[in-house]
Amino acid sequence: MTLLEVRGVGKRFADQVVLEDVSFDVDDGEIVAIIGASGSGKSTLLSLLTGALHPDSGEIRFAGAPLPQRRRPFAYMPQRDALLPWRRVVENAAIGLEVQGVSRREARRRARELLEPFGLAGTEFRYPRQLSGGMRQRVSFLRAVVQEQPILLLDEPFGALDAITRDDLQRWLLEMWRDSGWTIVCITHDIREAVRLADRVLVLPRTPGALAGEVAVSREIPRATGMLTDPRVPPLEAELHALLRSAG
């Protein structure tokens, strides 16, 4: 089932056009990655989905209906973990629910139940400064997931991490996704990460206009493990490199 539809969306700031005629779909249970050069409008697109910005043209639909202005069906994970330094792990994880009006006690109960599957058991009362970068990202991801929204929006979720931690968290995310069936839209600048995580990779052009292209990634490729040696991966990465170059 198609869950999200973006149709001819455009956005400008004063005389500067940032996005124009962007269209794509996201199916239920699918991971879609969006890549593009710096300045191609990736973050602006996420802001349009979350409601932080409103499109100047086009339409965004969810489950066949216009996207509601309130209670949007997205949980957002920013590029930086943005954990509040004065709040402990479970308190940081629960803050999204509290903003939605869930009681503090209930929000923290829900967050506490997910600590173990997120690899955070025993960290409930730690402050962000007491966590590694990878652990902080897990808390940030938990904060998004516990809201139980239909679609997760990830903004370069692992871009600030070292290579080993990034590899571990990519593998962990894929394992969690297989068990949960989440629908995910992920912004990334890393072609290899896009191929590893996504069912489809969309390419935004540098000059505003329709998508420069789309590359499908077979689910037969063992993405959690063994991907680096799979002979089907380099041609996909090469195709995306070519699309990015042709897109300016």
Rank of each mutant, 00 (worst) to 15 (best):
M1P: 13
L4C: 01
D15P: 09
E20Y: 05
D21K: 13
D21P: 01
D25T: 14
D25V: 15
V26A: 10
G29F: 07
E30L: 07
E30F: 08
I31N: 00
A33D: 11
I34T: 02
G36R: 08
A37W: 15
S38H: 06
S40G: 06
K42W: 08
S43W: 11
S43M: 08
L45Q: 00
L46M: 15
L46I: 15
L48S: 05
A52C: 03
P55Y: 05
P55H: 03
R61L: 14
A65M: 14
P66H: 08
P66Y: 02
R71W: 01
R72L: 01
R72S: 01
P73T: 01
M77S: 00
D81H: 14
D81R: 10
A82W: 02
W86T: 12
R87Y: 14
R88L: 08
R88K: 15
V90E: 14
A93W: 13
I95N: 03
G101Q: 12
G101S: 07
S103R: 14
E106A: 14
R108M: 12
R110K: 12
A111Y: 10
L114G: 04
L115Q: 10
P117C: 09
R126G: 00
R129M: 02
Q130I: 02
S132I: 00
S132T: 00
R136Y: 04
R138S: 03
V139G: 11
S140K: 10
S140Q: 09
A144E: 08
V145N: 00
V146E: 02
Q147K: 12
Q149E: 09
L152N: 06
L152K: 08
L152S: 00
L152C: 05
L154C: 06
E156M: 06
E156A: 07
P157M: 02
P157Q: 03
A160G: 04
A160W: 04
A163Q: 13
I164F: 15
T165G: 04
D167H: 11
D167E: 14
Q170F: 13
R171M: 14
R171C: 09
L173N: 03
M176C: 01
M176V: 01
W177A: 04
R178M: 13
G181F: 06
G181D: 01
T183L: 07
I184P: 04
V185R: 06
C186L: 15
C186R: 01
T188W: 11
R192M: 06
A198Q: 04
R200C: 11
R200K: 13
V203A: 10
V203N: 10
P205Q: 08
P205W: 06
R206W: 09
T207R: 14
G213S: 12
G213E: 14
E214F: 05
V215L: 08
S218P: 01
R219M: 00
I221Q: 11
P222N: 04
M227D: 01
V233C: 06
P235A: 00
P235D: 05
P235Y: 04
L236T: 03
E237K: 07
L240V: 11
L240H: 09
H241F: 15
A242L: 08
L244C: 10
L244M: 15
G248C: 07
